[in-house]
Every structure is written in C-alpha cells, then in structure tokens.
C-alpha cells in the first residue's frame, strides 16, 4: 500500500476522531459532534438555504477576485517595467498594504452606502496591493537574455507576451491566486457581516446571535469543501499544465 497516498486521508480521519472525542467529553451545545454538524449541513442543503447563500458569497468572490487579479496584473507589470512609476507609487502601495481590512470595509460602506458595489470595492481594495506587489516582483525577475532574443528575432508584442512573459509570470500569478483566494473569502465574510443581508457572512452573524455553533460549523465545512474543490479541480491542473517542461 502506498503510504504517501493514504497519509492525507488518515490524518483527516484522525482530525475528525479527535473532534468527536472532544465533543463527547465536553457534551455541550457549544461543541457539537461531527455527526450533528453533518446532519445540520444536510438539512440546510435540502432546504436550499445554504446553497443560496453559498452561491451569493461565491459570486461576490469570483467578481472581486477577477477584478483584483486583472487590475493587479496590469498595474504590477507596468510598475515592474517602469522604474520611475514604481519609485513614485511604491509609497502608495505600502500605505494600501497596511490599511486594516476592517477600515477599508467601514470606509467603503460609509462613503458609498450599504450597497453591493461598495462591498465588492472593499474586497478589491484589500486584495489589490498584494497582487500588484507579487506580479511586480515577477516582472522585475523577467529574463533579460530571452527578451533580447525576442527583440532580435522581431517577436511581435503579443508573441512576446504569450510565449515569453506569461510563462515566466505564471508561478507569480499562481501564488497571487492562492493567497488571494484565502484572503478574499475571509474578508468577504466580514463585508457581508457588516453590511449585507445575504451571503455566508450574514448567515454566520444570525447564528452567532443564537449561539448556534452547529450551524456555524456546518457553513464552515461547506465553505472549506468548496475552496478545496477549487484547489483540486482548477488550480492543481493549471499547475500541472504549466510545469510539464520542467525536469
């Protein structure tokens, strides 16, 4: 039997067992056992509530993530290429990197009202500086020898981007994607909790008022499952595709 393949499942099983054991000893509503959580999860899925709110949150995640990535890549590449622009905007980046997420969320709601676009904007502003910095470093590290080769052999701009720049930026884009997803979905819940009347964050807020931990954990499990699915079904295959040329 291949130990490397069974180890991850074993560790997951152990995690659930420890959880179950602790729930058994504590024997209180504040720590429901995995069985109860799965039951609640199933009930919520059947009723359609969970899927609706999950869908709304995922929609916000996809929109804000796409905007942050596209804008971040464009700005990051520009700053990476242009030294003067970079020197000028470097301070701005540091400022935006260090504004607490909660502050941007509150300010967006105060300035633009409790509306959907303000929520999306708040998430984008939180994520954007990270993408810019990652892609900027990637652009600075582009291989000058290969760029010279492209100039010499008269590559068009599109050709240079597709065959030379993109493959070199790919690891940086993947890094920005992974850290981005992890960051964005945590921020989105806060955004929803503070100023929206639907989505996962709003639901968690409701259950928190009832101290209903079983529901809170059920929603958490659902969310982790979705993020894992994105990792396994979308990101991993993208990685495999991109590194096939490596030794």
């Amino acid at each position: 039997m291949n130990l490397n393949k069974t180890l991850p499942s074993l560790s997951l099983l152990l995690f659930v067992l420890i959880w179950h054991g602790m729930a058994f000893f504590v024997n209180d509503n504040t720590l429901p056992s995995p069985v109860i959580v799965v039951e609640v999860l199933w009930k919520e899925v059947i009723s359609g509530d969970l899927l609706r709110h999950l869908g709304i949150t995922l929609q916000r995640l996809i929109i804000s993530f796409s905007i942050a990535m596209l804008l971040g890549c464009a700005i990051g590449i520009t700053l990476g290429i242009n030294k003067k622009l970079n020197a000028f905007f470097d301070n701005w980046l540091v400022i935006f990197l260090n504004i607490p997420a909660l502050v941007t969320i509150i300010l967006c709601y105060v300035w633009f009202g409790l509306i959907e676009s303000a929520a999306i904007l708040a998430v984008v502003i939180n994520k954007l500086p990270n993408v810019i910095v990652t892609i900027r470093e990637g652009t600075k590290a582009l291989d000058k020898d290969l760029l010279e080769m492209a100039v010499c052999y008269k590559f068009s701009k599109t050709k240079t981007f597709i065959h030379l720049i993109w493959p070199q930026l790919h690891p940086f884009v993947m890094a920005a994607t992974r850290t981005g997803l992890a960051l964005i979905w945590k921020i989105i819940l806060v955004v929803e909790l503070l100023g929206r009347s639907d989505g996962m964050g709003y639901q968690l807020h409701l259950y928190f008022q009832d101290f209903d931990v079983a529901h809170i954990l059920a929603y958490t499990v659902a969310f982790i499952t979705v993020i894992q699915a994105i990792e396994l079904l979308i990101l991993k295959p993208m990685d495999q595709q991109a590194i096939r040329w490596r030794r």
Partner: peptide, 26 residues
C-alpha cells in the same frame, strides 16, 4: 534579417525544440 546565435542558446525552456524554432518564423 539578422540571425543571432548567442553564447548561451537562449531557448524558451517552456516550449519544445520545434516550437522554439517555429516561433521565430513569420
């Protein structure tokens, strides 16, 4: 039309031999 063979081959590591050659053709 200038062909340049550099000290290091300067091939694109993420493209196959054939793709590397076909990329310079117009």
């Amino acid at each position: 039309n200038i062909g340049y063979i550099f000290q290091n081959p300067r091939l694109l590591p993420w493209r196959t031999v054939r793709e590397n050659i076909e990329l310079v053709l117009n």
